[in-house]
């Protein structure tokens, strides 16, 4: 039975976002968008989470933290990069202190560009992530490593 798709719990980490994307992520929880409809919950705890949502780009400060949170999540897990900063570094790409998108540190499954991402896009991104999540679960069940390419 695939309950995985019906109960995706997320943890949201702010790499070095300008807070634009963060606000939009939070907006999804408000009555207007209400992502809990889909069973989505913002847990704030990697051990409970299935989806790692990162906004903002990676820099020296956030590099280890992203890695650490990612490592703390039990399989199967999916990473979604929200906002162009998280996807590639965006307008900050050339900054002296920015390393680029979060795929510099951990494997990213879904890229959702936008500056900032709109809540509709976020919901769409999470739904896409669910597909990946389900794939990984099936792979895990058949005994293969969930992370194919890592």
């Amino acid at each position: 039975m695939a309950y995985m798709k019906r109960s995706p719990w997320i943890i949201h980490y702010d790499g070095s976002s300008c807070n634009g994307c963060d606000i939009e992520v939070l907006a999804c929880l408000t009555p207007l968008y209400d992502v809990e409809r889909f069973g989505i919950i913002n847990t704030g705890n990697p051990k409970h989470a299935d989806i790692l949502v990162v906004t903002g780009s990676v820099n020296e400060q956030s590099r280890q933290v992203i890695r650490n949170i990612y490592d703390q999540m039990p399989e199967p897990k999916v990473v979604v990069a929200f906002g162009i900063c998280a996807c590639s570094g965006g307008v900050f790409r050339e900054c002296y202190n920015v390393d680029g998108g979060i795929d510099q540190v951990i494997p990213v499954d879904v890229y959702v560009p936008g500056c900032p991402v709109r809540p509709e896009q976020i919901i769409d991104g999470v739904v896409r992530a669910l597909g990946v999540l389900e794939e990984k679960r099936a792979r895990m069940k058949s005994g293969e490593p969930a992370e194919a390419g890592v």
């Binding site: 980490y13 705890n45 990697p46 051990k47 280890q64 933290v65 890695r67 650490n68 949170i69 490592d71 703390q72 039990p74 399989e75």
Partner: peptide, 12 residues
């Protein structure tokens, strides 16, 4: 079982 470190607020 896969053993994880205790959560330390993301700090390695």
């Amino acid at each position: 079982r896969h053993r994880l470190a205790p959560y330390m607020g993301g700090r390695p």
